[in-house]
Design a protein around this nucleic acid. Structure first.
Ligand SMILES: [Zn+2]
Ligand SMILES: [Zn+2]
Ligand SMILES: [Zn+2]
Ligand SMILES: [Zn+2]
Lengths: 169, 169
DNA sequence: AAATTAATGTTATAATATAACATTGACTTA
DNA sequence: TAAGTCAATGTTATATTATAACATTAATTT
């Protein structure tokens, strides 16, 4: 039986959608990847990843610590930063540099340089897939600089927030 | 008499070059812009801009404070951050988000979203001009997100550092 | 000159992140 | 299985980056 995969644009993150499906798909991929790469999926790592998946919003390390504390986990700074390091290193999460905050990766499994769209009204974040975001650099620059990674963060207003604004007026 | 402007690629920032010329050109533009926009070019602002222009490297706020202190300026954190805010707001400087550090703008005069190439060996930074860096986003994303600004930071190894490495081997 | 505002000065503290070392628990391997 | 090893977590302390709030000074306007 063939799986039919309906490809959804990243902009769904900004709208109402079946988030349970998002969550479950990501969580399944997380489990699968950890198994394949023989990475230890500990309760702490699982919990932090769960928090990062909550609602397409980036969260700060200290917010994570608060939530860990409420759930009975130890919650001193290194606890959060170490798990975040692990998740980022393994390609399961990203840091949003602009906001010193963290979010689950939407295309997990290998390290990559993401492009984010970030709504400054609702704070929701969408990670674009590579084919939807291409940085075109001029030939000379490319020849003189060996690119290793990139930070691309687009800040603006998502359609939902924009429409709300229009209605208000 | 027509001015002949020899357009230099940003990659010059990574190489030996006539930096006195860089410095003077930028400083002249800073003075001119402040005059035109009726902005107060105070000793403090001038000094901070000067520091940011030093050598195509981004510097942190607390490094700036150290240097201000050595030059007899007051040097508590708000001193630096306020001047940096002014310079960024007016389009004379940028923050490199990835490193929480600041650098003079290479195309000053109006606010814009820069693209940086940053060498992780020598820490030198080059701000690309708009025509040399274009972010191509897919149509759907563009139609569903109103872009206001972007952070684009490319990290890698510059040609000079790369050659040094090769020679070493 | 008085009033107003912009810029700078100052004190305190918030927010983000890392260093260094201790403990625990799982996995080897003898 | 007991000893040894190593990865993960726990803990304390501290470093780094940034802002809030209010005071003073200098420039500009009235
Ligand atoms: Zn969702
Ligand atoms: Zn990703
Ligand atoms: Zn610029
Ligand atoms: Zn270099």
């Amino acid at each position: 039986m063939k799986k039919i995969q309906i490809k959804k644009a990243v902009s769904k993150n900004f709208k109402k959608h079946n988030h349970k499906l998002c969550y479950e798909t990501s969580m399944k991929a997380f489990h699968k990847n950890c198994l394949e790469k023989n990475l230890k999926l500990t309760p702490l790592r699982l919990k932090v990843f769960e928090l990062l998946l909550k609602d397409h919003r980036a969260i700060g390390a200290y917010q994570i610590l608060d939530m860990l504390s409420k759930e009975g986990f130890s919650s001193t700074p290194p606890i959060a930063y170490r798990v975040l390091d692990f998740l980022i290193e393994q390609g399961f999460a990203h840091k949003i540099e602009r906001f010193n905050a963290f979010i689950a990766c939407s295309h997990p499994g290998s390290k990559h340089s993401p492009t984010f769209m970030i709504c400054r009204k609702c704070d929701k974040v969408a990670e674009m897939c590579e084919k939807d975001s291409r940085l075109k650099l001029d030939k000379k620059s490319l020849s003189e600089f060996q690119i290793e990674e990139s930070v691309i963060e687009i800040i603006g207003i998502c359609k939902s927030c924009n429409q709300l604004e229009t209605i208000k007026c």
